[in-house]
Nucleic acid binder design. Structure first.
Lengths: 234, 234
DNA sequence: TCAACGATAATTGTTAACAATGATTCGTCT
DNA sequence: AGACGAATCATTGTTAACAATTATCGTTGA
């Protein structure tokens, strides 16, 4: 149960390309691919048993999502947003995600409620197992499903992109091994959502995202990179 | 004065491609290119004195922005969002743009204030001259500069995309020749912004966007298309 | 008249070879 | 040793030709 489910509409990409794109997004979200990592076309083509042309299209798509940077004649790299962009992304997230809690576009169906519950349970499981990759995955998924449930597809797509960029930002600027997403925050949020006390939910979401921001240190950037073949096997 | 200024960061596109992309965006925004219009690669390559490969990349980029649809083996078309998507885009816009008024990310600099003033004046000029294309252009620009001034780059990029999609939606679903953007709305908004009365500004923005929605009729889609060479000359 | 069919034309999709650019290595000279 | 420079290598960028698919048009036959 609970498929990967993070698949958004991959407009303009054929299925094969969209698989590659999603694999790269997953690797970036889960911080197996760090900011600054090189993404050589030929190597990716080999790993995914695809062609350079296809990889090229995927890299362009990811560049448009701002999680990849293409330097002409130099190649593609995982983006490493600077402090200015980082602050802007987080401010945008706060504005939008708080907005979703304040004025939900649609009522939360029972189905969605259950899905959120399951995601939270997965988060707890990952936390108990000290599986930090799983924690990141489910944490992102929680925010995404919240947007899907109370917002709509358009908003969910937007937030989905912002979550990915946030993951890069945290990879670069997080203070120590900060407790990635205070464990209790999502529980409280879900409780407020279930109780339909939107002002409270909005307050919690705002606090939650501010906490994340305060755990960042914009004075020193971080070192990146390792191999590829291992990282992207799925 | 007042350059085109709608140029966002064209991450992943080389300048030549970004010119083509912006020309197509302009044509779509100003409804010279209607929903459903075919966009043949070779023809575009000729018009813009570019190559098929480049055009192909541009079309992919625009497809990722949801203003173009690529049907495999059939070609690229200007998107024609259905009623569901239309409602979602408008709901998202309302949520985000109202959010920007409620909780501005940054104070409005004097420079920005003047820019907004100028845009409004252009809008009035266009209105007086019954130049509907210019009216659309400046109206969109007003919303964009508001987002740039009170939000940030990330938010402005998001809104910029939503504005384009809105233009397509209006082209398809507008009731009659509805008075495109009640003339006075933007004036009132700017007044509230200048007075820094954010709750009032938020209320006005919400009302403004709701008005637009109420001028739509989701029962009948609209007929499209005409030639290309004429439309895209700049 | 209209439907089905087939041939032709137009358009998109893919590939492979080549060109151009940037990185690396190695050798030389001070 | 270290700095400079040339040659080599690796990677990206571009093009043109070809393959595959879809649209168009005219013909045939009920």
């Amino acid at each position: 149960m609970l498929g990967s489910g993070v698949t958004l509409q991959e407009e303009g990409l054929v299925p094969e390309e969209s698989v590659v794109a999603q694999a790269l997004r997953d690797a970036i979200l889960e911080r197996r691919l760090g900011p600054g990592s090189r993404l050589p076309e030929e190597q990716l083509a080999e790993i995914f048993a695809s062609s350079r042309g296809r990889i090229r299209r995927v890299l362009l798509a990811l560049a448009r999502e701002r999680i990849v940077v293409i330097q002409p004649s130099r190649g593609a790299f995982v983006a490493s947003p600077d402090a200015v962009e980082a602050r802007e992304v987080l401010a945008a997230r706060r504005m939008i995600e708080v907005g979703v809690m304040e004025r939900p576009c649609q009522p939360l169906t029972e189905e969605k409620r259950e899905l959120l519950q399951q995601v939270i349970e997965e988060e707890h499981r990952a936390h108990a197992a000290h599986d930090s990759v799983a924690m990141i995955r489910w944490s992102g998924r929680f925010h995404l499903e919240l947007a899907r449930g109370l917002g709509n597809t358009v908003i969910a797509d937007i937030i989905s992109e912002l979550i990915l960029r946030t993951s890069l930002i945290i990879a670069i600027y997080e203070r120590q091994q900060a407790t990635c997403c205070l464990k209790a925050d999502h529980d409280l949020l879900l409780a407020a959502v279930n109780a339909r006390t939107w002002p409270e939910a909005a307050r919690l979401m705002s606090r939650h995202l501010l906490e994340i921001e305060q755990n960042l240190d914009f004075s020193a950037p971080a070192p990146p990179t390792m191999s590829l073949g291992l990282i992207l096997r799925r």
